[in-house]
């Protein structure tokens, strides 16, 4: 990974990883169950240990998982949340529904105009 990662490149790594069902299953297993070794993952997922090792190496290269020493000198892999949060920012922009929100504002303004005469009348009543 470059020292100063480009935000678009980070998001792309996450989305490419998620587009592959095996890598998606591996990331999901790490998110759900915490750090695990390739062997742990092979017992939990319908993927061969060799394929898991290959995917984990690729995910580590992309910075989406981090390798760390585990028990009995086995390497454990941990999900790295920083790239996921960058992807989340991308999704948040897509999910921000200003179109619907501005429609709601227009509707609200039209509604208060409709009730306005009644309010004005009330305000003019003798004190």
């Amino acid at each position: 990974m470059p020292t100063r990662p480009d935000i678009e490149a980070v998001a792309e790594e996450v989305f490419s990883a998620l587009a592959d069902p095996s890598r998606r299953a591996i990331l999901a297993a790490l998110a759900a169950g915490g750090p695990a070794t390739a062997t742990d993952l092979a017992t939990r997922l319908p993927i061969t240990r060799q394929a898991i090792a290959k995917h984990l190496a690729l995910l580590a290269e992309a910075g989406l998982v981090a390798a760390e020493p585990g028990e009995r000198r086995r390497v454990r892999y941990r999900l790295r949340s920083a790239p996921m949060q960058v992807a989340q920012q991308f999704l948040a922009a897509l999910a921000r529904d200003w179109d619907r929100q501005l429609d709601a504002l227009q509707e609200h303004l039209n509604t208060i105009v409709a009730v306005q005469p009644a309010r004005t009348k009330k305000a003019q009543e003798p004190k």
Binding site: I7, F90, A93, W98, L102, Q106, L109, N110
Partner: peptide, 12 residues
């Protein structure tokens, strides 16, 4: 990357 969102509406 969608860094910025902009909308303009005419309100009566």
């Amino acid at each position: 990357f969608p860094g910025r969102i902009e909308r303009t509406v005419e309100v009566a």
